[in-house]
Amino acid sequence: MDAISRRLLFRIGIYGFCLSLDNLVEIREQVIGLIDYRSQEARSVVGTFSFRQTKIPVLDLAPQLELLPLNSGNALILQGAEGDWALLVDHVDGFCAVSEMTDLQLPHLLQRTGWRCFDRVSLYCGKAYLCLNLAACHDGAPL
C-alpha cells in the first residue's frame, strides 16, 4: 500500500500553517523552560535547545509575523541541511492528507517582496493554512 502524503497543521498566533511531514523529526511540548536564550545567532533564532544530546537552534517566527513572541512552549523539531532545528508554535491542530487540501497561489496583489515564510495557501475544511517555506524561515541560512 502506498504511504499517504500528509501535512502537519499548526498555529502561530492567529495564523494557521501547514507543513509536509518529510522534514518533521518530532513534536515536543513544554520546551520553553529548556531554551537557552543567550545565543542569538541570526534573525528569528531566539536561542538553543538540547535535543538528543545536541544543541539545536530554536526559531520563533512570531516577531517577524508582527506577533508577540510565543510563550506556549511547543516546538516542532525539523530536519535541516546541517542538522535539526526547532520551530516554536502555539498549537498543533493535527494532520491531514495532502489530497484533502487544495493548494492556491497568492494573487498578485497579496504577494510581497522581501521576507516571507510562506509561498502559497492551502484550504482544508474551509479554512486557510499558509504553506510554510522552511528555507525562508531562517533567511536562507542553513540550519
Binding site: 492567529i14 509575523l65 508582527e66 506577533l67 496583489l109 497579496l110 516571507r116 479554512k127
Partner: peptide, 10 residues
C-alpha cells in the same frame, strides 16, 4: 464570507 488572516499584508 470567510476572510482569513494573512501576515505581512501590503
Amino acid at each position: 464570507g470567510y476572510v482569513a488572516p494573512l501576515p505581512l499584508l501590503p
